[in-house]
């Protein structure tokens, strides 16, 4: 238990030290950070591994069966790479559950929080990947 707590502190502290200016670069004031929107069984339509931020585009069928087209941004590529992301982490056609901090405008865009894959593993954002919107407490897919 003690070792687990120590490792948690190491990971949280390490991520805090990473890429600290890049979140400010395209800051988070646009997003509602109280509770993420959950897009269960969303289908990835495009994963853009681009600067200034990678974009995840996904279709999500709402309770009425209407398809919503979502776009969400990750932290910068540098931070994403250092926590295990690559340009092939998500691919078109993947069915996943996405957690996203939606824009305050109500548009179907937001800041990415985390993704649950079909195999039960999870990947988080380097900057807003914790369940409370803070930095993630995990580094690689697990």
């Amino acid at each position: 238990m003690k070792a687990k707590v120590v490792m948690m502190l190491i990971l949280v502290g390490g991520l805090a030290a990473m890429d600290s200016q890049s979140f400010a670069h395209h800051g988070g004031a646009a997003f509602e950070m109280k509770a993420p929107v959950v897009l269960k069984n969303a289908t990835i339509t495009e994963f853009l591994w681009i600067n200034p931020h990678p974009l995840i585009k996904a279709d999500y069928k709402d309770a009425q069966g209407k398809v919503q087209q979502w776009t969400m941004e990750l932290g910068g590529i540098v931070g994403a790479q250092l926590v295990g992301w690559s340009r092939t982490t998500l691919q078109e056609g993947d069915v996943v559950t996405l957690y996203v901090w939606q824009a305050k405008t109500g548009a179907l865009v937001g800041r990415f929080n985390k993704v649950d894959f079909a195999d039960g593993t999870t990947m988080r954002d380097s900057q807003t990947g914790a369940d409370d919107g803070g930095r993630a407490d995990t580094d690689v897919r697990r």
């Binding site: 490792m7 190491i10 949280v12 502290g13 991520l15 805090a16 580094d139």
Partner: peptide
């Protein structure tokens, strides 16, 4: 320090 340790873990 934590960053260095994290990178070791990574």
């Amino acid at each position: 320090i934590a960053g260095v340790l994290l990178l070791s873990a990574l």
